[in-house]
Computed example of a mutant assay.
Amino acid sequence: MLNINKVVIAGHVGSVEIRYTGDDSVVLNLSVATNRRWTDKDGNKNEAVEWHRVIVFGKLAELVKEWVKKGTQVYAEGVLRTRKWQDKDGNDRWTTEIVLSGYNAILQVVDKKEQEVKEPPKVEEADTNGAAEQTPDDMS
Rank of each mutant, 00 (worst) to 15 (best):
L2Q: 14
L2F: 14
N3P: 05
N3T: 15
I4L: 09
V7H: 10
S15T: 15
S15Q: 12
S15N: 14
I18V: 15
I18M: 13
I18D: 11
I18P: 04
R19M: 15
Y20P: 03
Y20N: 08
T21I: 11
T21Q: 00
G22F: 04
G22S: 12
V27C: 08
V27Y: 02
N29T: 07
L30W: 03
S31E: 00
T34A: 11
R37K: 15
W38C: 03
T39A: 05
T39S: 10
D40H: 01
D40N: 08
K41D: 10
D42N: 03
G43R: 02
N44M: 09
N44W: 09
N46H: 14
E47Y: 10
V49Y: 03
E50G: 05
W51G: 11
V54H: 06
I55T: 13
V56E: 02
G58R: 05
K59Y: 05
L60N: 07
L60E: 01
L60T: 14
V64Q: 15
V64D: 07
V64E: 15
K65A: 02
E66C: 04
E66S: 09
K69G: 15
K70V: 13
G71A: 00
T72R: 06
T72S: 15
T72K: 02
V74C: 06
Y75F: 14
A76I: 13
E77S: 15
E77A: 12
G78T: 14
T82D: 05
T82L: 07
T82Q: 13
K84Y: 02
W85E: 08
Q86R: 15
D87C: 04
D89H: 09
W94F: 14
W94Q: 14
W94V: 08
T95P: 06
T95Q: 13
T96Q: 13
T96Y: 11
E97P: 11
E97R: 08
I98M: 13
L100V: 15
L100G: 06
Y103L: 05
N104L: 06
A105T: 08
A105G: 07
Q108Y: 02
Q108F: 00
V109F: 07
V109I: 12
V110I: 13
K112N: 04
K112E: 08
E116I: 12
K118H: 12
E119F: 01
E119V: 13
P121W: 07
K122S: 04
K122C: 02
V123E: 01
V123G: 01
E124V: 11
E125T: 07
D127N: 14
D127W: 02
N129R: 15
N129D: 13
G130R: 06
G130Q: 07
G130V: 06
A132G: 00
E133M: 10
Q134M: 14
Q134N: 09
D137G: 06
D137F: 02
M139R: 10
M139W: 03
